[in-house]
Design a protein around this nucleic acid. Sequence first.
DNA 1: CTGAAAGCGCTTACAG
DNA 2: CTGAAAGCGCTTACAG
Lengths: 349, 349
Amino acid sequence: MPTLLDISRKTGLSVATVSNTLNGRPGYSKATQLLVQRTAKELGYTANPLALGLLGKSTRTIGLLWSLGGPHSAEGMARDIALRMQHRGYVTHLTDSLSDPDVVGRQLADYRRRGVDAVVIQYESGVVTEEICRQLKGFSAAVAVGPVEPFDEIDWIHHDMPNGYRQAVNHLADSKRTRPALLVHAAVAVHKIKAFLEQCRELGMDVSDRSIINFPANGIHKQFASLCRQSLDERFSREFPFDSLICQCDELAAAAIAWLRERGVRVPEDVAVIGCNNAMLAESLWPPLASIERHDEKVADEIEKLVFSRLDDSDLPARRRNVQSQFIWRESAGKRLSPKTNVKLSGGL
Amino acid sequence: MPTLLDISRKTGLSVATVSNTLNGRPGYSKATQLLVQRTAKELGYTANPLALGLLGKSTRTIGLLWSLGGPHSAEGMARDIALRMQHRGYVTHLTDSLSDPDVVGRQLADYRRRGVDAVVIQYESGVVTEEICRQLKGFSAAVAVGPVEPFDEIDWIHHDMPNGYRQAVNHLADSKRTRPALLVHAAVAVHKIKAFLEQCRELGMDVSDRSIINFPANGIHKQFASLCRQSLDERFSREFPFDSLICQCDELAAAAIAWLRERGVRVPEDVAVIGCNNAMLAESLWPPLASIERHDEKVADEIEKLVFSRLDDSDLPARRRNVQSQFIWRESAGKRLSPKTNVKLSGGL
DNA sequence: CTGAAAGCGCTTACAG
DNA sequence: CTGAAAGCGCTTACAG
């Protein structure tokens, strides 16, 4: 790998001169500038990021602190972001936060030492503590992506997943469903549970704590489907007392549909089912699976914009962006009843 | 962040002494060793990877050069590997190779400059050129994961995806299917196509170039399903002339099943359908979707072992590992006929 | 047993 | 207009 010293020797100029002209510092003769630039190009010179980092300058590195362990896998995003960074000449560090503040704290410290320019942290509630915010502010840029506002003045993308759940509940109410249930990993889905219950109550539906079916899964894995059936079996040995079911991911929804089918329950006639994340397979299922679109590509857009605008100008005030999830209707959710037919058909459900 | 100088000042010892004892170099008094170690712990000292990298030592970094753009998304792996590396105190660079040798070459050069210790490159045929092998050998460790042997002495994991396709063909032959088709992105699936055709011919099935249905998708995206229907519509306006179909991914298989169902074709009675990658949703489909399990977790296991064993001992010879994909039977593939019933039933299919 | 010196590849005052 | 010098945080001969 060619260094400044190589250019210096080849041109007969000092290393300082080479560095200065290469960085566009004024006060050098046109001839020198041209000579240096030409030689640099000839040799294929690029500044060593390690050396720059040691001096506290940019290493063209961004750190992705992702909680990949959740019940859905946000991995499409990691890829998307890495590719965007790559196009801008940046390199991406990928780390799993494991949704643990201690892990996050340690990784952030490591990122600092490595001269990472910007960090993007994706979190569930409770992870971004005050101390972690302090650490985040030590980077040239930091973007928090999550459901709750960070403690401090950090650029924040509010990924509003509950919104899609509310829309889904609206649809169920429109279809005259009255006894909805929510199938989620309760430990990490507090905001979704809250949104679900609130919206149901507002619309006069019949819900209680028993409407929340806990699915005790730590992450997605191959035994997912049988685990789902098993926990449904345990809880509902006799009959399934709900007329609609929203699930935390499409995989869960598909497993639930299979389970219902085995027991002679028709979807959507007897029970409407709605998944989440809008997996590519959803529309190919039978019945096609209604879902909630995360709009991860919008999140990625905002991340890119926030990171690079701040890297350009550190004086920017803290910014907030909002990305809302969105209910996607498909047959499994049951037809929406138009206002006119409502009266006639409502008894039939 | 505490530095050696901090420890030096606090203990009154020279920076060289601190460095030497911290690195366990012999010849220092017990007292000094203890003092330095205690102080280092007190201060929470860790060596700066940037400085180490500049000296050509380990930065505890590994680079993942992934071709994420293919028709299946190998993203679960990136996460898995990143997590394993993290547990060993390493940090992971994630880069998309875009299946382009130029991109790979450039990224590899960047990795070098950044002092990356090991690189894991995942490729399709044609990407790992001789020149790229040369670059790979410049790292302390390099593992190639792909369908063809690399040119040179590089640790290689042969991820044998064609194997599962061959097993799937065997199953179809056992079930007396005679006119199989393969639905793939032909440009990148050369080895799978070859294995499919060879195995079919060996078993006396009726195949030709027309048995390969090209699906012109560059990457997985939301319009996948409708794109699939569309290309099937174009090619088979009147009737579907096959009795079985293997698809390059489960998403494609599900879309094909939906398309067949719309035209009154029964799965698996009229056409057996087999997917690939064994998505979590596969077993919850109706009929449950047969698939091909990639065994990515085994690949990840081997990657971890190969990388760290070589980092431990650079004198190891180049090693080869084999991970075979595996056909997973489910209803969509149609029942296997036992040898006895074959004779009786064979006419019925 | 310990430390002064040089150097990895760069940048930044500062002197000339 | 240009270059010598110091320094970022570390390691490695080498001298004492």
